[in-house]
Design a protein around this nucleic acid. Sequence first.
DNA 1: CGGAATCCTCGATGATACTG
DNA 2: CAGTATCATCGAGGATTCCG
Lengths: 144, 144
Amino acid sequence: MTGISSFRQADIEEAEAYLDREPPAEIDPRLEPLVNEIISRVADKWTMLILEVLNEHGVMRFSEIGRAVDGISQKMLTQTLRQMEREGLVTRTIYPVVPPKVEYALTPLGDSLGRAFCGVWLWAERHIDEIESARAAFDACKDK
Amino acid sequence: MTGISSFRQADIEEAEAYLDREPPAEIDPRLEPLVNEIISRVADKWTMLILEVLNEHGVMRFSEIGRAVDGISQKMLTQTLRQMEREGLVTRTIYPVVPPKVEYALTPLGDSLGRAFCGVWLWAERHIDEIESARAAFDACKDK
DNA sequence: CGGAATCCTCGATGATACTG
DNA sequence: CAGTATCATCGAGGATTCCG
């Protein structure tokens, strides 16, 4: 897992550009709960990590993903992959051989989600220092 | 709360542009856990919702935010605002009056985080239909 | 009003064991 | 190998109460 390294220079430049702007515009308010639901589902820890390794390695077997995603249990791996398949983020291909072989790959939709997160990755990367010093200052102040 | 309506047209256009690209580039791998930690903290449900209402309304009192963020308990409101303050996302201003008055506002850092999420909002909004039909297809298939 | 403190519940997750 | 099933735990989060 190399995180942000799975974005191209073009992605990064464009995402950087829009990081220096300001609000707003108009839209159907009924969309909000739906969008929130999708984001909270999709932004979960394991989903993001699996998205990353699949983006980097391309097609992978079940146990390969398990090895690549550090700390994930078999249960959560299965569960998260099922969810992602349900949302249309990954494809699941079963080879009727013995021992069983199942391959996972990102769909175009899953791929585009990875790119959508580019801006957030850049933000986090850019502001790590700022955040850590803010934390330190806050904690120091509270300790008195 | 109007969700995506708190982004400007310029943000949206730029975010849309980079949604149609592909991977990768190079970076320090040690950043990954840090970035992941920040994202998972910052991408949590309440943080995103509070970010939204503050972005829309500007300066707000504690109870105002509580009313604007539907369904949040007092505990989570306090807790999330403290975290956000600690990370440097919001400022907390106490007026020594009676009854107490405390105002919250986004810092420039908090503001920039809201903009960073623009791409994810756009992605979710754009693909709601695709996701819902994928889910329906998946579920229909499983029911047999 | 804006919290802090307490208690309590429930769901997400991990560990373990079994199977096609 | 790629799961499913079951049990156990642990902590996030809600409800309630009290306070400056």
